[in-house]
């Protein structure tokens, strides 16, 4: 299945990052990042904890500010211009490790909030869209419950649906399964695989190597704030080039 999906990559650029550097105070967290993501491409980013993976994808929707270089998302360059930031954010969906659902709103309200207030979609239409995506992530029956009443896997699927309701062109995932119990990981991965098969442009920070092998066009390995190696999944796993990559792979695949 995944092989067919991999064919759909277009030659249009979705995200262009060039010469990007970022510091937290004195700490040089991202160093000279260069990276191009095509429309429809699915990229998995892995690397040891603290290597800057989260920081990198959070720069893409400007949850973090970069100090040097250029990030262009869907033709819009990220600068201090609030208009551009809002435009990019409404076109880039993001799924967090800890779901970050709004606990005071029902599932349905979580899903319709941004479309109603940002996209100005009429309430009724927003609710129909929300139900459509809830069906897609296979939990339409939970629409009127509150996030606190759902399991972790269900909450993460709601979070994915919440992003999809904004009809994003790009989806960012920051370790979406690492806060989940093993039995719930699969249901979330299945949702993400289905999304990949529809041709969504995705950047996914994850250590689920099975997922990477099944859907990724490219795997990027980061260490100490730098891109150390990138390759298509088969080559990446079977024939890693750098010593760091080999060490990392042996550690996560070793047990």
């Amino acid at each position: 299945m995944a092989e067919a999906a991999k064919m759909q990559v277009s030659d249009e650029v979705a995200i262009q990052i060039s010469g990007m550097n970022k510091w937290y105070g004195q700490f040089h967290v991202l160093r000279d990042i260069n990276m191009t993501v095509m429309k429809g491409e699915r990229i998995v980013i892995c690397g040891p904890s603290g290597s800057g993976k989260s920081t990198l994808i959070r720069c893409v929707n400007r949850l973090e500010e970069h100090q040097q270089g250029q990030i262009i998302v869907d033709g819009t360059e990220l600068t201090n211009d609030l208009k551009n930031i809002d435009k990019v954010r409404s076109e880039v969906g993001m799924v967090f490790q800890h779901f970050n659902l709004f606990p005071h709103l029902t599932i349905l309200e979580n899903l319709t909030l941004a479309p109603i207030w940002v996209r100005k979609v009429p309430k009724k239409e927003a609710e129909e869209t929300a139900m459509y995506f809830l069906k897609k992530v296979k939990i339409p029956e939970q629409a009127l419950k509150y996030p606190g009443q759902l399991s972790g896997g269900q909450q993460q699927r709601v979070a994915i649906a919440r992003s999809l309701c904004m009809r994003p062109r790009i989806m960012l995932f920051d370790e979406p399964t690492s806060a989940l119990d093993p039995e719930m990981i699969k249901e979330v991965l299945d949702t993400m695989i289905a999304l990949a098969e529809e041709g969504m442009t995705m950047i996914c920070v994850t250590h689920e190597m099975g997922f990477a092998q099944a859907v990724a066009n490219r795997v990027i390995f980061m260490d100490q704030g730098q891109i150390v190696e990138q390759n298509e999944p088969k080559e990446f796993f079977n024939n890693p080039q750098s010593e760091r990559t080999k060490l990392f792979l042996s550690q996560i695949l070793g047990h």
Partner: peptide, 11 residues
């Protein structure tokens, strides 16, 4: 995370 989720949704 609540602030970040709101930001990420474009609010």
């Amino acid at each position: 995370g609540q602030y970040e989720a709101a930001d990420a949704l474009g609010l």
